[in-house]
Structures are given as C-alpha cells and as structure tokens.
C-alpha cells in the first residue's frame, strides 16, 4: 500500500520539504487515497474548530478550571528558551489544543509532559510556511486561515500519537511504570555491567527513566533530534508505544563509559538527568536508531534465544 511505501522510505529520515505531508500520512490523519485528502483535511479542520466553539468557553467552569489552570501555567514553561513559543498567538494555540484534548479524554485528562508533545507537530506544520529562522518567526503575521490549519493539524496528529500511548497518562500512569520495568529487564539482559552498577549504587530506573518515557526523550534531546526521531517512530509500527523502549535502552548504553566511571549515587543521578546531547544531530540519532533496531530484532522478535 501507499502508506507502507511511505513508511519504508521514512524510517531513515524524511527530507524537510516533504515532512509535513508525510507526517500527516504516517500518523493516519490523512488518508493514503490522494483524491480523498483535500476533503478529509477540510472536514477535520472544521471539526476541530467546532470543538473549540462548543467547549473552549467551558475552561472557566468549576469542573474544568483546574485543568485549564494547570495548562495555563505550563504553556510558558514549554520550550521556554525558544522565542517562537513565547508569542501570545502561539501560546493560545497550545492552550486550545491541550484543553480540547484533555476534556475529550477524561480518563487521563491533562498530564504534564503532554504539553511537550504538541511542539514537534506544530514546528513541522509551521515549517511549510517559514524558510528560515523559525525560532524567531512571528506567527501572528501568517494569514489567520493558515494559523488555524496548523493548529487543527497539530491537534489531530497529537491525538493520533496519544491514542497509542494513553496508558502513559491514565491514573497512576501504568504505561510508564510498565515501560520502566521493561527497560530495567532489557538492560539487565543486554548490559549486566550497567545494571549491576545501578544496583550497587542504588540507582532506580524510575528515578531517571520516568521522564524518558513520560516525555518521549524530548527533555533529553534537542528539538531537531526529536523531530528526526519521530520520523522513525511514525514509520515504525508501534513506534511510540514499543520501539521507544529499545531507543531508551540504546540511549542508556550509549553513555556506558560515563556511567561506569561514576562511582556514587549522587554523581550517577546528576549525570543521568543532564546527559550531554546539546550538540546532537541527525548522525547521532541515526546511530541510536540503528542500535535500537538491532536490540529490537534480537530481543523483541526472538526473546527466548537470549534469555539468561
């Protein structure tokens, strides 16, 4: 099928110019059938703005005001170092997207971390209209309809992503608990040294990997790397829900030398919560993904062969 072909070509990274359309396809937001696309886009965008008309005013209702308050205090703290995200027009877009998503998903509601997940979609869909210096681009200067289309598309693609990982954000966050346990189990099989080192210094995986799962490594990597990573996550079946685990394991092993040379609890935790990825780009992400793929091949597809 068309979608499978797109998947195959996207796994190793999508060229910038075709990334917006490709992401809309891979997320399942746009149909593969070319004739239907325009109509679907139009319908979905209208649907989103009908939600806004119907529900956005309820943010001041007793029932929803806590949700709105939390979103409202988190938005300025989302990507605080990038001027683009300090613009009122952009913050309002994020608030609407997150509020509507939260009230439509009462089982989880708004959970901190979900705010980060809007960013890659917003940036990619905005990139269709910005050629340079996106970080300082004035979004309010775009035609209103363009702004609205970016907003609606970001909402729907983020919703598709979250559909696959909802149990990360439901009460007590069982999806995250399970994935952190799975990471621990996987690391104990692929790198006993690291695993024993953590045990010896009483480092618990939850202490650092909770954030890796909750924010899909977005707090550990520069935004450009997250976008590249999501090319693959969307190309891979169950990318966000399963493949991410192998990426986390590969990411941990990547710092093997630094981890093993740190011989106290304090030093280990400080290292693990501030891993030096600031200069990372496509090359590092590519290597990380290749290693993750190898781990997945060895341990997910034929786990019994490698069990200790």
């Amino acid at each position: 099928t068309t979608r499978n072909i797109v998947r195959l070509h996207s796994w190793s990274g999508i060229p910038r110019e075709v990334r917006p359309i490709t992401w809309r396809l891979l997320s399942g937001y746009l149909p593969a059938n070319k004739e239907r696309r325009e109509l679907v886009l139009k319908r979905k965008r209208e649907e989103y703005f009908r939600f806004i008309e119907q529900y956005y005013h309820s943010r001041t209702d007793e029932h929803y005001k806590d949700t709105y308050r939390q979103i409202h205090i988190d938005i300025p703290r989302t990507n605080p170092l990038i001027p683009l995200f300090q613009q009122p027009a952009v913050q309002e877009i994020f608030e609407r997207i997150l509020f509507i998503w939260a009230i439509r998903h009462p089982a989880s509601g708004y959970v901190q971390g979900i705010n980060d997940l809007v960013t890659p979609f917003f940036v990619v869909f905005l990139s269709e209209f910005v050629t340079e210096d996106m970080e300082n681009f004035d979004v309010a200067a775009l035609p209103l309809e363009t702004q609205r289309n970016i907003e609606a598309d970001s909402f729907w693609c983020m919703s598709k992503l979250l559909d696959g990982i909802q149990d990360n954000y439901t009460f007590a966050q069982p999806g995250i608990q399970n994935k952190v346990k799975a990471l621990e189990e996987l690391v104990s099989r692929i790198d006993e040294d690291i695993h024993n080192h953590f045990k010896r210094y009483e480092v618990e995986y939850l202490q650092f990997a909770f954030r890796w799962m909750n924010n899909l490594l977005m707090r550990e990597l520069p935004l450009r790397c997250t976008i590249r990573l999501w090319d693959t996550y969307q190309a891979e079946a169950e990318g966000f829900s399963r493949f991410h685990l192998y990426v986390c394991a590969a990411f941990l092993i990547k710092w093997r030398k630094e981890i093993l040379s740190m011989v106290d609890f304090q030093g280990l935790l400080m290292l693990l919560q501030n891993l030096p990825t600031i200069h990372w780009g496509n090359e590092e992400v590519g290597l990380l993904l290749a290693e993750a793929y190898r781990l997945k091949y060895m341990f997910a597809d034929a786990p019994s062969h490698y069990k200790r």
């Binding site: 988190d74 703290r77 989302t78 605080p80 170092l81 901190q112 971390g113 705010n115 939850l206 202490q207 909770f210 954030r211 909750n214 924010n215 707090r219 304090q266 935790l269 400080m270 919560q273």
Partner: peptide
C-alpha cells in the same frame, strides 16, 4: 525560564 519538573530531579 525553567521547564516543568517531570518525575523527580535531584541536586546536592
């Protein structure tokens, strides 16, 4: 411009 804290963070 600090970001929201996710999970636990630690310093000494």
């Amino acid at each position: 411009d600090s970001r929201t804290t996710i999970g636990v963070e630690f310093s000494t």
